[in-house]
Amino acid sequence: MAEQQPNNPLHGVTLKAILEHLVEVYGWEELGDRIRINSFNTDPSIKSSLTFLRKTPWAREKVEKLYLKSLNKK
């Protein structure tokens, strides 16, 4: 049984949903400027970015922080 995590704003949000939100808010170019990752700057796609982010914890952490920051702006 899954535990409830009321204080975790990322609970239940998929990495794909996070990435799609960031692309919608910032676009690939600005996203690549904010987080220096080749998959954001060179022929960007959701698929290649997800593959990289799932294998690279430091990059995923930066993406999650930017996502939370973008939610706080609203």
Rank of each mutant, 00 (worst) to 15 (best):
S39R: 06
S39W: 01
F40K: 05
F40W: 08
N41L: 14
N41T: 13
N41F: 07
T42K: 15
T42V: 13
T42R: 15
P44I: 01
P44T: 03
P44F: 02
P44V: 00
P44Q: 04
I46C: 12
I46A: 09
I46T: 15
S48L: 02
S49I: 00
S49W: 00
T51F: 09
F52R: 14
F52I: 10
F52G: 01
F52D: 05
F52V: 14
L53N: 01
L53C: 03
R54W: 06
R54Y: 08
R54T: 14
R54K: 15
R54N: 15
K55Y: 07
T56I: 07
P57K: 15
P57T: 14
W58D: 11
W58V: 12
W58T: 15
A59V: 03
R60H: 07
E61K: 15
E61F: 10
E61A: 13
E61V: 13
K62D: 08
K62Q: 15
K62M: 12
K62H: 09
V63E: 01
V63I: 15
V63H: 05
E64H: 02
E64L: 06
E64A: 00
E64W: 03
E64T: 02
K65A: 10
Y67E: 02
Y67F: 15
Y67R: 01
Y67N: 02
L68C: 05
L68R: 04
L68F: 04
L68N: 06
K69Q: 14
K69N: 10
K69L: 10
